[in-house]
Simulated assay, not measured.
Amino acid sequence: MTIENRAVYSSDHELFRTNARRFFREELEPNIDQWEKDEIMPRSFWEKAGANGFLCCGVPEEYGGPGADFLYNMIFSEETGYAIGGASVGFSVQADIVAYYLLHAGTEEQKKYWLPRMVTAESIASIGLTEPGCGSDLKAMRTTAVRDGDEYVINGQKTFITNGQNCDFCLLACSTDPSKGAKGISLIIVEADRPGFEKGRNLDKIGQKAADTSELFFQDVRVPVTNLVGNEGEGFAIMMRELPRERITIACRAQAEAQRAFDLTTEYVKERKAFGQTLLDFQNTQFTLADLKTDLTVGWAFLDQCLVKANEGTLTPEEGAMAKLWTTENEGRVVDKCLQFFGGYGYMKEYPISRAFVDARVRRIYGGASEIMKLLIARTL
């Protein structure tokens, strides 16, 4: 099994894949070195993706989108992961997460205003969940939104926010009633130009160097109550409902990144010679790559089962957690063993395998750490 031509996808899906892969080869890979030095991807790259119809594929036509099924999103996630440097691309937060929060819980006015802008990248979205003292434990968040007449007054801080520098708005998780714990969390749209909304530094990461990952600060930020997404106190329930979708998206990225690392390595060992023969001629190479190919094939098979359910809207939190756990942990094993075949060259930044190695590490942390995935799975035993 390979990344292309899997039974879960139709010929139309595969045509979309071909176009997406061409887009990344032409627009991302020649520029990734410079963008990593800049530590940000330019808005022009976002706008080109929007112009080519790659953003927010699942947004219905009435809101300016193509109205495609969720599998188109997942193909684009896979191709983002398969591209060299794709780990830094923040499209998924926009297309696979925030867009669906708005589609499923937003008001008609919110959908009509924001979704067309997200499709074209006129507006870039971020989602504000993690805080300095609150990662996977979302119930412990301290950012507050206090009702004052027809407005909310927001105070707090978020960190590790993808698209934090580029964002035009943040879908912010706040506590509207701290006494109620999880049932007091709400989701509120906060536009980036609101007084008191400050974007902090672009965080210096070990990988994903071209991704703008930021701290966000909110000091007496006033937003109208019409910016509330869903009802007050429903934020945690909305997040729990949408998290399986986020986790299957991360799984697609991780699986594709692992596949690209394997493919790069397979090409390399066929050419690299040592002791008078290619690396592939050694039994150790053959056995190691045979193990990795088997693990990748198992991953694709399980992932495709989950994709069918995600497209139908029946993917359970347990299945989303298992998909993320398996693919991200397996990616770590794959890229580590693949880098070893490159020897000293694998430690050099100019070799794509070194970028794959450092970029992969965060997959086991964000979107819910592997330990949290195990907790979720264990609850079903």
Score class of each variant (00 low, 15 high):
residue 11 S to D: 12
residue 250 I to N: 07
residue 43 R to D: 00
residue 161 I to L: 07
residue 369 A to L: 03
residue 297 T to M: 10
residue 162 T to N: 06
residue 97 I to T: 04
residue 249 T to Q: 11
residue 48 K to T: 03
residue 269 V to D: 00
residue 106 G to A: 01
residue 34 Q to G: 06
residue 232 E to D: 12
residue 174 C to Q: 01
residue 360 A to L: 09
residue 275 F to D: 10
residue 270 K to E: 10
residue 234 E to R: 03
residue 234 E to Y: 06
residue 208 Q to W: 01
residue 31 N to P: 03
residue 136 S to P: 05
residue 246 E to K: 12
residue 239 M to D: 05
residue 276 G to A: 07
residue 238 I to D: 00
residue 162 T to S: 15
residue 95 A to P: 01
residue 309 K to P: 12
residue 123 S to F: 10
residue 165 Q to L: 13
residue 83 A to T: 06
residue 16 F to R: 12
residue 347 Y to R: 12
residue 348 M to H: 14
residue 272 R to N: 03
residue 292 L to R: 02
residue 128 G to Y: 07
residue 221 V to C: 06
residue 81 G to T: 05
residue 186 S to W: 09
residue 266 T to Q: 11
residue 241 R to M: 10
residue 26 E to G: 04
residue 372 I to R: 14
residue 226 T to D: 08
residue 318 E to Y: 08
residue 228 L to I: 05
residue 65 G to T: 02
residue 186 S to P: 08
residue 12 D to F: 12
residue 145 A to V: 04
residue 139 K to S: 10
residue 89 V to E: 00
residue 121 A to P: 06
residue 128 G to D: 00
residue 235 G to Q: 01
residue 170 C to I: 11
residue 306 C to N: 11
residue 343 G to K: 11
residue 243 L to A: 10
residue 167 C to Q: 13
residue 236 F to S: 08
residue 205 K to M: 12
residue 168 D to R: 10
residue 187 L to H: 10
residue 359 D to N: 15
residue 202 N to L: 10
residue 202 N to V: 11
residue 89 V to I: 13
residue 291 D to G: 14
residue 235 G to P: 04
residue 284 N to D: 09
residue 340 Q to L: 11
residue 160 F to W: 14
residue 181 G to W: 02
residue 352 P to K: 08
residue 361 R to K: 15
residue 21 R to C: 01
residue 208 Q to F: 02
residue 133 G to F: 06
residue 347 Y to L: 12
residue 140 A to F: 02
residue 141 M to Q: 05
